[in-house]
Nucleic acid binder design. Structure first.
Lengths: 235, 235
DNA sequence: GTCCCTTTGTGAACCGATGCACAAAGTGAG
DNA sequence: CTCACTTTGTGCATCGGTTCACAAAGGGAC
């Protein structure tokens, strides 16, 4: 099925653009707070740390919301981006796994800010169940399905140990959840139609280490080291 | 300066490949623990959740480490990837900002695992300074430069409030740090040559919300809502 | 109204990444 | 040694995303 779009706008926003919209939104909110009424693509692009042509192309995917010769109306654009991202509605989020990270997420203010509401905290450890964190009672993982249904949770944040993540994912998917933010260092296997986003601290560090190594290599005259398999493989 | 590569290998690993190497490494470590001696690109690709052709192309950028008809030697490949990523050396990491998130990071086990060592915790709050977290003393932010130099810190993790991040970044860059992992929800302005990686929880949630909205829209018959500017713009 | 200035929106070239599909290279059986 | 089979490494077509550069559109002065 080839579906030509009427105007290049008709629900066809590139993934790369979607990933940047929150960035623009944050910059715009800051500008709105400072009382700015309009902003040019150039200024907004600088604030968001991107190229202005890219910004204009991104915004053009939402519609033609700018005024040539003037720029964009800050509040209007805030509204349009919010609407496009689905932030004009209220999303109930459940955090599964109330260890150090889960706790940090529950308390993280910016988390709740716009459109998101932590509606449940769940954990398997009886020691933790019953704790009061960020104004919420930690419930037992056995209640997972019931809680998700009862509170209309549509986004689940996994902050469990790696070993538990897949199993929890399967359970929440079985109750109809299709959006998961995964902090556990595992590759989740999920059916078609389920969106997974992954945040992996150790991967980010490893990427940094790679570039850091290259930088220091360059200074010390390059990696002219033996490429043989060393005797001891201490890993 | 055009520098044609001799063999497509000569320090020219695509960024997308670098971002996947840690994934392969994790899968391989699991296989090594289970005693697997060799693995085919197909099996490893499945474990890492990628296409096998992509996996082979990725690995080919490191060198020709496989054996046709057999596959890859697990331990050998673990070593090669580790070396390429710079994990055969020890990286000292400083965490700045010991709030909920910083605490979680300090205690996060997988963080320390391979090659990384949390060498310092710093905070501006006198209430927190002196606390003992994950076997480390929290030091005052005034000590930032001294601590970085003294302990040979080369990677800094920013877990400060948004307002403080830029300033801290500038200070650590001034002492020679060129690799920063930023958890603060701000776009950092940094000079050429400094690598920033950004982890932003609220952005990830917003991206999920976008897709979730589309999914529910589709079910309820599409977003045939008015696109006008509503009277109240409650934001 | 006309003219000039600013800024958007986008066509088109470019660039990197993906995935197919296959030749090359290795193993093992007989 | 030869043959059948497995699996790698890669050339090539394709795709999505980025960037340039400019025509089109609006504002404001006069």
């Amino acid at each position: 099925m080839i579906r030509r779009l009427s105007q290049a706008r008709e629900r066809g926003i590139p993934e790369a653009t979607v990933a940047r919209l929150p960035l623009y939104l944050r910059a715009l909110n800051g500008m709105a707070e400072r009382g700015l009424a309009t902003v040019s693509s150039e200024d907004l692009a600088v604030a968001a740390g991107v190229n202005s042509a890219k910004l204009r192309k991104d915004l053009s995917h939402l519609g033609s919301y700018g005024t040539r010769g003037v720029g964009y109306d800050v509040e209007y654009l805030v509204y349009q981006i919010s609407r496009e991202l689905g932030l004009t509605q209220d999303w109930a989020v459940a955090i599964v796994g109330v260890g150090n990270l889960g706790r940090a997420l529950a308390n993280y203010g910016g988390f709740v800010s716009r459109g998101f509401r932590v509606a449940a905290l769940l954990d398997a450890d009886p020691e933790v169940v019953g704790d009061h964190i960020a104004g919420l009672n930690v419930e037992h993982i056995d209640e997972l399905e019931a809680v998700i249904r009862r509170r209309g949770v549509s986004i689940v944040v996994l902050a469990t140990p790696a070993a538990a993540a897949q199993q929890v994912a399967e359970r929440v998917i079985a109750v109809g959840v299709t959006s998961i933010l995964n902090f556990a260092p595992v590759v989740l296997a999920v059916p078609e139609g389920v969106d997974i986003r992954k945040v992996d601290l150790s991967i980010e560090l490893q990427i940094l280490a790679f570039h850091e190594q290259r930088k220091t290599d360059r200074m010390t005259g390059g990696p002219a080291m033996a490429e043989e398999w060393p005797e001891a493989v201490d890993l």
